[in-house]
């Protein structure tokens, strides 16, 4: 099976990650052909998930399609690399109904546009106008500080990090002092023994 895939879909060789999990990386334009091929010939009828990882350094998204056989014995990971800026990906909602929700989530969180998916309105973020939150250029803390206000602490509140550092230093100093005092006490006791002996 792997040879046929390698030959007619010009992919890197299929990697057997686990006894029931194979992985292959494929160029985007051959993706749907491979999925149809697996769907028809090898009973890979169930689409488990569509996931996307943001490789900001390389400047591309890695879209992974996980499809499983009918008797759930084996899963196939098909990975493609797509661009990061206003990417257009062909939707599978016609072939797999559940793809519609997955694509809708990816659209909301990564801003990927799926052509052919009839319902791409927001899923969990209502009235969200900023950049899609799961993209790595979006900094949550900076967003929070900018949009939301925190509860201002009590007057005598101190910066948590500085406070912990100070406390830790204090404890260390305390420990050293005890150790020194103990050594002094041992030394004096040793001395008394020696005096006594």
């Amino acid at each position: 099976m792997f040879k046929t895939i390698k030959s007619n879909f010009a992919t890197a060789d299929v990697e057997v990650k686990r006894q029931d999990l194979y992985k292959v990386v494929i160029k985007y334009d051959r993706l749907s052909a491979l999925i149809d091929f697996l769907y028809n010939n090898y009973t890979y009828k169930i689409l488990n998930a569509i996931t996307c990882t943001d490789w900001i350094e390389e400047g591309h998204f890695a879209l992974t399609y996980l499809i499983t056989t009918e008797d759930r014995s084996n899963t196939f990971m098909i990975q493609t690399l797509v661009g990061r800026e206003d990417t257009k990906v062909e939707s599978f909602s016609k072939k797999f109904k559940q793809a519609q929700i997955m694509e809708r989530d990816l659209h909301e969180m990564y801003g990927i546009d799926f052509i052919g998916n009839d319902n791409l309105k927001e899923l969990s973020l209502e009235n969200w106008v900023h950049t899609p939150p799961l993209r790595r250029e979006f900094d949550t803390l900076e967003f929070v500080n900018e949009h939301l206000t925190f509860r201002e602490g009590r007057e005598d509140n101190v910066d948590v990090k500085a406070e912990t550092k100070r406390l830790r230093a204090l404890k260390k100093a305390q420990k050293e002092a005890d150790k020194k005092a103990k050594e002094a006490a041992d030394a004096s006791a040793l001395k008394e023994n020696e005096d006594g002996k």
């Binding site: 969990s124 973020l125 949550t140 929070v144 939301l148 206000t149 925190f150 509860r151």
Partner: peptide
């Protein structure tokens, strides 16, 4: 509800119910 709890830096939750 007091100050955002462990989601203090989440873009999606409110930090202070009081407001």
């Amino acid at each position: 509800t007091v100050n955002g709890g462990m989601y203090w830096d989440s873009y999606n939750t409110i930090k202070k119910l009081e407001d």
